[in-house]
């Protein structure tokens, strides 16, 4: 469990980036974090693994105050995949890249070897294992970055903008992976601008605007409240926009549509009732 207890944070004294943030993230859920550029999303998640410490208030990860521990220690429980894979890949080979975090955290040699093999396989990278990470394609580098964080088997995983510059197939693969990560004692936090993706992936959506939490609930609850979207400069999914516009002509048409099957269903019913 992650607890933000009245967290305030500022990089320089006259301007708070996070304000009065109270939040509980419970295991077993995939949670989305959205908000306009500069809303404080990355600043917020950096508090979870202690890269940033609150200016005021406290953050607890599994009962431990992040002020009283280090990022290296938290790395066992919190995995953080950064937006740009090129910001973390450096090793000579894929094997060494995955082993890096395990070595830092003093895993035994046998355990390291075993996990490297397992995670290369899981992310379909085994055939490149002796190559340089820099020879991989963009999508493969992204997968390697994920594998090199996940090999620690953290209970909490943070993905910062994982869908950026990814094609539809990669997005689907990411979605499948996120589902496999779901378990009663795991927390997955997804930071994204990609509304369509978030709606499909998350159980709970947090909307941050100008450093304050302005909405917290299931995607469906939040989609029903258009004012939130304006404040956080987000666009509802196209299907929801479509439903809202159609409802102006056909009042009985449901507006809380988020997925394709729901839309097909609603249109189908409409057509049948007209016949």
């Amino acid at each position: 469990m992650i607890i933000f207890d009245d967290v305030w944070f500022s990089y320089n004294p006259d301007q708070y980036v996070l304000r009065n943030l109270c939040l509980q993230l419970k295991p077993g859920q995939i949670i989305g974090l959205m908000g306009e550029n500069g809303a404080g999303k990355t600043t917020l998640v950096k508090h979870i693994n202690g890269l940033l410490k609150p200016t005021q208030g406290a953050v607890f990860v599994d009962g431990v105050n992040t002020r009283e521990t280090s990022t290296a220690q938290l790395a066992r429980q919190v995995g953080f995949v950064f937006q740009n894979a090129d910001h973390q890949l450096f090793a000579d080979t894929l094997q060494a890249e995955i082993a890096f975090a395990l070595r830092n955290l003093d895993f035994s040699k046998a355990e390291i070897e075993q996990r490297v093999t397992r995670y290369l396989e899981r992310f379909e990278l085994t055939r490149y294992q002796d190559q340089s990470p820099f020879l991989l394609s963009g999508g493969e580098r992204k997968r390697l970055a994920l594998a090199s964080v996940l090999c620690v088997e953290p209970k909490i995983l943070i993905l910062d903008e994982p869908t950026q510059a990814q094609d539809a197939l990669q997005k689907q693969k990411l979605l499948d992976f996120m589902e496999t990560f779901r378990s009663p004692d795991h927390i997955l936090l997804l930071v994204t601008h990609d509304m369509e993706f978030a709606i499909r992936a998350v159980d709970r959506l947090l909307i941050l605007s100008k450093g304050q939490l302005i909405a917290d609930g299931s995607p469906r609850q939040i989609l029903n409240n258009p004012s939130i979207f304006e404040r956080a400069r987000l666009l509802p999914p196209q299907l929801t926009q479509f439903a809202h516009q159609l409802a102006e002509y056909i009042p009985q048409f449901p507006t809380d549509i988020t997925t394709l099957p729901e839309a097909v269903d609603a249109v189908n019913q409409l057509l049948r009732s007209r016949r």
């Binding site: 290296a72 790395a75 066992r76 950064f82 973390q88 890096f100 830092n104 955290l105 964080v149």
Partner: peptide, 15 residues
């Protein structure tokens, strides 16, 4: 960028 990279590696347990 250097700060971002340092953050990324510290998240992987680099001390």
């Amino acid at each position: 960028e250097t700060e971002t990279i340092r953050d990324a590696q510290m998240s992987r347990g680099l001390e």
